[in-house]
Amino acid sequence: MTRDEIKDVVLEIIQDIDEDGEVENLNADAPLRDQLDLDSMDFLDIVMELRKRYQLQIPEGDYPELASLSSCVNYLEPRLKDV
């Protein structure tokens, strides 16, 4: 997957979790938590959804990598390159 495709997937997953959140105008480098109504359970949902879709295992120690949209894409890019 390309960086743009990964970004779209992450946004789609987030939109399912936070239906009222405005994901279009996110600051990619700022923490998602500060811009949307997300809590630690929501990040768990993202992890579980990525595992379901791409069999991707994200260890608990790596959860902080999902903090912002850019860090998500950076983290996922090498892991989803063959998808």
Binding site: L44, D45, M48
Partner: peptide, 8 residues
């Protein structure tokens, strides 16, 4: 939900 994630 947390445990379902572990089990999954």
């Amino acid at each position: 939900v947390i445990v379902a994630n572990d089990a999954d």
